[in-house]
Design a protein around this nucleic acid. Structure first.
Lengths: 141, 141
DNA sequence: TCTAATCTTGACAAAATTAGTAGGGTATTA
DNA sequence: TAATACCCTACTAATTTTGTCAAGATTAGA
């Protein structure tokens, strides 16, 4: 499994914020209920996204969360990495301790996989995803 | 992390067997020592690969493990799936229970990722990897 | 035939990671 | 000033990964 619920939940929440971009803050409860995500858990995820600079918050009554940048300037990769750490195919790419960095063939295939994953997540923005959702919605109606 | 040590260890061992294809069996210890994999652990992995039909075994003295098919007929995907189960990017693709299978955009990106991973592992055979290793070896000398 | 080398099987356990829960604190505003 | 909403830290439960262990079955070769 490449992605845990962290990345999944966080990406859904980010997308929800992207939808509301420019329309004021969304509070935690509304997101957690809509996507059926435990409130406290989601809070931790959004806190990470805030620290990474992708979302802003407004405290107090009428407060909530909002995207800190335009949806077109936030990629799926940014969100996933903030929540899950570097997205990697295999541990052997992280710790260069296998002693065969230069001759290990399995390493090569892991690198290929990783490149192709990164290629996708770094080239898809939240805006792209919103467009896609609209498309899907059209097709369904 | 997409792949655990299971897939990594198992793939390395399979590749080792591919190298020795047609040259008699390799015993557990020789593989586990060469790649620094706990013997009992590797044993379990090879046992799975046997059950999946990718390797054969010979018991008793002078026995060991050998590839059950030609290296060109075994893909990386076969090995990885036998050891790790279906290679998937996100749980939401397995259990179709999110209730939004048809309108969920995050799902689409997870599917894209998964396709690209499968594309790589299903189109690389053990033979391909042996060729690559030979290439690497040449370059290094 | 005996023995050492091998694989076979299943149960168990330690460690790490994931997925939460809980609760008190702080800021804002109506 | 009370209600709303984010903030922060610690704890816990569940799951998965990564092994360990021990008793057995099979075979080659002395």
């Amino acid at each position: 499994m490449l992605l845990s619920t962290k990345g999944r939940y966080g990406l859904k929440a980010s997308l929800e914020l992207a939808f509301f971009y420019g329309k004021g803050p969304l509070n935690l409860k509304s997101i957690s209920e809509k996507y059926n995500i435990p409130e406290s858990y989601l809070e931790q995820l959004l806190s990470k996204l805030k620290k990474s600079g992708y979302i802003d918050t407004i405290r107090g009554k009428q407060g909530g969360y909002l995207l800190a940048k335009e949806p077109k300037d936030i990629t799926v990769g940014m969100i996933l990495r903030a929540l899950e750490g570097e997205i990697t195919s295999s541990d052997c790419l992280k710790n260069d301790k296998c002693g065969e960095e230069n001759t290990c063939v399995t390493r090569i295939i892991f690198e290929d996989i990783e490149k192709s994953i990164n290629n996708i997540i770094d080239n898809t923005t939240l805006e792209d995803m919103i467009h896609k959702r609209k498309q899907i919605y059209k097709e369904a109606h």
